[in-house]
Amino acid sequence: MSCKDIMNSAPPVLQKGTTVADALALLRQEKRMNLPVTDAKGKYLGLFGAHQILMLALPKGARADDEQNLAFIADSVGDVISRLKVVAAHPVERYMDSESETLTPDTPLVETLHILYLRREDLPVVDPVSQLLKGIVTIRSSLGKLMVTE
């Protein structure tokens, strides 16, 4: 058994050029933590999701140092929303994570589960040669499939 046996091969995707606002709407609609970003030919470009949106909600200085304590900043909800409004019309590829780990359809099952356990997030499955998106493995769906198999 390998990754392809537990992956969702027709996941919702964000097309290159999708705005941050539209991406947020799709994430909420699909109840996903993140979604893969692809180009028109289906080539995988990166991941965009809750992590990137939280980053965009923070002051830019926070991105420069992950260990920085920001308790001294007195921003309100309105300040945070206004930061998100600034980027709402920007394309997702500007902020997506293009360096995060990907799986291949042939990644062995145990290694797939191991990576899911370590990363604690849904992971894209990408063909290692063509770089085309083949599917996505979510923690929820993989556990579901394993239970059905049993």
Binding site: K60, G61, A64, D65, Q68, L70, I73
Partner: peptide, 14 residues
């Protein structure tokens, strides 16, 4: 600079 730059970015943004 590792310590000053992040807080500088925060102050400039505010």
């Amino acid at each position: 600079v590792l310590l000053i730059v992040p807080v500088t970015l925060v102050i400039c943004e505010e």
